[in-house]
């Protein structure tokens, strides 16, 4: 069997393998002071408490003292952290702090949350990988005229995520180096995901209806 420790014991190091890193591979010139990152000096796993403390300190330092991360630890010991940023302005500094922690951008999710119309709000969640743990930073934006700064200058792989976000939603990504459409055909209207609420004729079930009419008609002929 593997040398994993029991997921039930909270105070042991996370039962995951070590992450190799070389200082020369860091895109960031200033290495973190020892003990402030998400791995120990030898590149090994930190104790969860220390890891959580260091992430909290980095985010609070960058995005303001009121920035809090709620962590959940699943049955296998995997951590997910959830943080709602106090303001849209906090996104850039918070993202830079994650980059300094050697975080990797994993995914960007834009969405209209439940009762979006009523609240007049939308959300964008930025999911980062921190050596196996996932940290989600959520910004809350107004439903109309939403703007976010581009994270592509910090995380190169944010490029496609933001291009896609811009074509599917009415959100402007400020400072994106290449804001062309990505997946959506030019004949399709802009921002199809905005049309979910209210439900429009844009996504009605016209094809289903036409096909089923024929199925029913064909069955009548046979009868």
């Amino acid at each position: 069997m593997s040398d994993r420790t029991s997921p039930a014991s909270d105070n042991l190091p996370l039962p995951l393998s070590t992450r190799e890193r070389g200082p020369e591979t860091s895109p960031h010139p200033d290495p973190l002071p020892e003990g402030k990152g998400i791995v120990d000096a030898g590149g090994g796993r930190l104790y969860p408490d220390q890891f959580i403390h260091n992430v909290a300190a980095a985010l609070a330092g960058a995005a303001g003292e009121q920035t809090e991360v709620a962590w959940r630890r699943d049955r296998k010991g995997v951590l997910t952290g959830w943080c709602r940023l106090p303001s849209g302005v906090a996104l850039l500094p918070a993202a830079r702090a994650v980059a300094e922690l050697q975080g990797r951008l994993a995914m960007v999710t834009a969405y209209l949350p439940e009762r979006a119309q009523e609240k007049g709000e939308r959300e964008i969640a930025y999911h980062f990988d921190l050596d196996g743990a996932t940290l989600t930073l959520t910004v809350i934006l107004p439903l109309e005229w939403s703007r976010v700064p581009s994270l592509t200058p910090i995380f190169r792989n944010c490029d496609w995520q933001e291009r896609e976000l811009m074509e599917l939603y009415d959100v402007q990504v400020v400072g994106h180096p290449d804001p062309r459409r990505l997946f959506l055909d030019h004949s399709l209207p802009h921002a199809p995901f905005e049309r979910l609420v209210p439900y429009s004729t844009f996504t009605n079930a016209a094809t289903s209806k036409a096909l089923w009419d024929k199925v029913m008609a064909g069955a009548r002929e046979d009868a």
Partner: peptide, 8 residues
Amino acid sequence: KSPYGAYD
């Protein structure tokens, strides 16, 4: 890195 299911 993030064990799930039976992999642990």
